[in-house]
């Protein structure tokens, strides 16, 4: 089985978010970066498990500058076989997807994995775009994926429930919680990762139609209004008359 896992680098969940240059650019000062959790914990680990069970290869791909190599090495340490980095700082989700699709188009991958979304832009766009560019079926928000003879059984999250589907490769899938359990790289994996191949590939030109004008920080809450625990009638009154939510 030939598997491709798309990984991205995102600010850590606990990172303080602020902006510079008149609120037009993200302030990277002192921000810790991590591999996007959905990519690492669910997409990558499930791909490695499938390979361990049935043989094959797991390639990870990242679209980004050389400073992203640290998360790519981590993916190799967790168990991917080789890596590809498209050497550009992507300007939009369409840019990222185009770079990945351009690489994958003649590689005959059986499954292309992404996380369900990145935790910075929360767009959930890239997987569907890759699928559209390669004319592949797309299964979103998979919480279970098993090989079943020459096809696959995938459980996907739908509004208020789950749906089980049968599908044959090749396809694109985005990984949600439940697909796998997080793996911590061990020392042997970290040492081996240093010798695994990483191919740096130049980007293709992509027309961009979406630009960020600026960012705004949320208005600070007015501060919590504490209610006497004996007086829930007062809370109900405030929810009805002040917040107007019931």
């Amino acid at each position: 089985m030939k598997l491709l896992v798309c990984i991205s680098k995102t600010p850590d969940t606990t990172a303080k978010i602020s902006f510079v240059e008149n609120n037009t650019a993200f302030n990277t000062d002192g921000v810790q970066y991590i591999m996007n959790p959905y990519d690492e914990w669910y997409a990558l680990v499930r791909a490695i498990e499938l390979k361990e069970a049935a043989g094959g290869t797991v390639t990870v791909i990242n679209v980004g500058p050389a400073s992203n190599d640290i998360v790519i090495r981590k993916a190799l340490a967790i168990g991917a076989d080789d890596a590809v980095r498209i050497d550009t700082d992507p300007t939009s989700s369409m840019d990222t997807a185009s770079q990945i699709a351009n690489y994958a188009k003649d590689q005959n991958f059986d499954i292309i994995f992404t996380g369900k979304e990145t935790i910075d832009y929360n767009g959930a766009e890239v997987a569907g775009m890759i699928a559209a560019m390669l004319d592949l079926p797309f299964v979103s928000f998979a919480s279970k994926l098993d090989q079943d003879g020459d096809s696959f059984k995938v459980t996907r999250d739908i509004e208020g429930g789950i749906e089980e589907i049968g599908i044959q490769g090749p396809f694109v899938v985005s990984a949600a919680k439940g697909l796998a359990e997080q793996r911590i790289p061990n020392m042997r994996g970290i040492m081996m990762a240093k010798r695994k191949p990483m191919n740096i590939i130049p980007p293709v030109t992509v027309e961009n139609h979406v630009t960020v004008d600026d960012y705004t920080l949320p208005v600070e809450k007015a501060g919590v209004k504490m209610i006497d625990p004996e007086n829930m009638d007062e809370l109900v009154r405030l929810l009805k008359e002040e917040a107007k939510v019931i």
């Binding site: 766009e125 775009m129 559209a132």
Partner: peptide, 23 residues
């Protein structure tokens, strides 16, 4: 911006060379 809407929107946007913002 639902389970099916998110993926479908990205798919359609790509096919139509449309710019997309989700959420």
């Amino acid at each position: 911006h639902s389970s099916s809407g998110k993926g479908l929107a990205a798919y359609v946007a790509t096919k139509l060379s449309a710019g997309i913002v989700s959420g």
